[in-house]
Computed example of a mutant assay.
Amino acid sequence: MILALSLALALSAAPAAAPAPSGRALNTQGFRLYQSGHFPEALEKFQQAAQATPDYALAHYNAAATLGVLRKQGKVCEYSAHRDVIVEKLTTAVRLDARRLQRAREDRDLDVIRDTLGWQKLLGRTPEKEADVPALLKAVSWYGPGVGVYGTTRALKFQDKGRVELWRKNVDDSGTPRESRTPGTYTVRGRTVEVKLPGSAPITGTLSAAGALTFPEPLGAFSDNPSECEA
């Protein structure tokens, strides 16, 4: 009885565990780290804040913006600062608080995703609308699939006045990459996109409602995400 009573008194005298930081407190810590240029540490705090308070729009937004900074710094692989990840976090923030979109329009940290389908969708343009196809072709950067450690080896950039540029990265037997850019022209009818490059017959493809731009070979398929961090 005496032992039990002593144990009960000891437990009652023990200090209570500190409560876990709130999402707002973690976000504030992250903002201070961001302001001082400690972006990886800031990202960790923003992500913890979003996890602690999933409906806290500002935490999701700040995580997206900080990933944008890390992407600009070339730290894509270290912190998974991929374009689709940034878009996902920003989209969540806007869904939770529509005012975040106006801030995003002016935020230079998010310049790295302006040429994605996700950003265009936030602006109200979507490949589901056939009328939006011409604008989306020009607004989005289109990348071919990755090839092993070499990543993306081709991309299309649609421009004004029916001009298009095909970017290629060719890798020789020694593993040395060489880039080339070929100008061409294109036309759009509905979802159909016809590309004409010098010395070859026109190639006709489509932009699907899901946002996939597909041509027969040798062009192939394109999306708005480059291949990155492949082993």
Rank of each mutant, 00 (worst) to 15 (best):
Met1Tyr: 06
Ile2Glu: 15
Ile2Met: 08
Ser6Leu: 08
Pro15Cys: 05
Pro15Ala: 01
Ala17Asp: 09
Pro19Asp: 06
Ala20Glu: 09
Pro21Trp: 07
Ser22Thr: 12
Gly23His: 02
Leu26Arg: 11
Gln29Gly: 04
Gly30Lys: 12
Gly30Ala: 10
Leu33Trp: 03
Leu33Arg: 02
Gln35Val: 00
Ser36Cys: 04
Ser36Leu: 00
Ala42Ser: 08
Glu44Ser: 15
Lys45Tyr: 02
Ala52Ile: 04
Ala59Leu: 09
His60Leu: 00
Asn62Gly: 11
Ala63Cys: 15
Ala64Arg: 04
Leu70Lys: 13
Gly74Tyr: 00
Glu78His: 14
Glu78Lys: 15
Tyr79Val: 04
His82Thr: 05
Arg83Leu: 05
Val85Asp: 13
Val87Cys: 11
Val94Met: 01
Val94His: 02
Leu96Asn: 05
Leu96Ser: 03
Leu101Thr: 02
Val112Glu: 15
Ile113His: 07
Leu117Gly: 07
Gly118Val: 02
Gln120Ile: 02
Lys121Ala: 05
Lys121Cys: 03
Lys121Thr: 02
Leu122Asp: 02
Arg125Pro: 14
Ala131Phe: 07
Val133Cys: 14
Pro134Ser: 08
Pro134Ile: 01
Ala135Phe: 12
Ala139Ile: 06
Val140Ile: 06
Val140Tyr: 05
Trp142Asp: 09
Trp142Met: 05
Tyr143Asp: 08
Gly146Ala: 00
Gly148Arg: 08
Val149Leu: 09
Thr152Asp: 10
Ala155Asp: 04
Lys161Ser: 03
Lys161Asn: 09
Gly162His: 08
Lys169Ile: 00
Glu179Ser: 11
Arg181Lys: 15
Arg181Val: 03
Thr185Phe: 05
Arg191Asn: 05
Thr192Arg: 10
Thr192Ala: 09
Gly199Tyr: 12
Gly199Asn: 12
Pro202Asp: 00
Gly205His: 04
Thr206Ser: 06
Gly211Trp: 08
Gly220Asp: 09
Asp224Thr: 09
Ser227Tyr: 11
Ala231Asp: 15
